[in-house]
Amino acid sequence: MADEGLKSELQKSGIFVTTIEELYNWGRKNSIWPMQFGLACCAIEMIATAASRFDLARFGAELFRASPRQADLMIVAGTVTKKMAPQVVRLYNQMPDPKYVIAMGACAISGGPFRDGYNVLKGIDRFIPVDVHIPGCPPRPEALLQGLIMLQEKITGDKLEDAEWYKDPEHGEFPVPQYGTNGLVPRYNAEIWKPWTPPKESESAS
């Protein structure tokens, strides 16, 4: 990484210095292509965000793609039912790397008001890795923009040499849950999510 002071000195004299990594991440963060799909009422806020008043295009993410093959951001906008969860995981698997996930709204984060229901997944992070959680029911368009800016910051911080999709381009797909007799099998992907366990007595004391 170039010395920041030297960079700004050179810039004053008309020389622009950057790294491949910075240039690459700058390009990626300003052309996020979200996938065009919504699951519930949060999708209406997502549409409002993309429309002229809030104008997602200001952040380069206005190009909603109807195919997962052309998208690199999945906005999980709404309640994920157990019946829908396998399809969401499958769509995520079909997206090319590098890919990101925003869990939009209380339902996508935790099941929200429906978490006690028999039919609602208690958070999409049980099956796919989530980069940004946006609370709200539904979140205001400003909140979605804030979430997108946070994702852009995360992309800016990506390191090419230890980026997951370069280190392990053959990495497997996330397992798609199956319909069981009273819910999904498995109930969660144990590699990325675990239920809360009470802390040991010694740890809680410290």
Partner: peptide, 20 residues
């Protein structure tokens, strides 16, 4: 779905994941 067992709107139905 077709393989589902039980009738979840009955008041004595116990949903599965009680892990919160």
């Amino acid at each position: 779905w077709d393989g589902f067992v039980g009738h979840p709107m009955r008041k004595d139905y116990v949903p599965e994941d009680q892990d919160s």
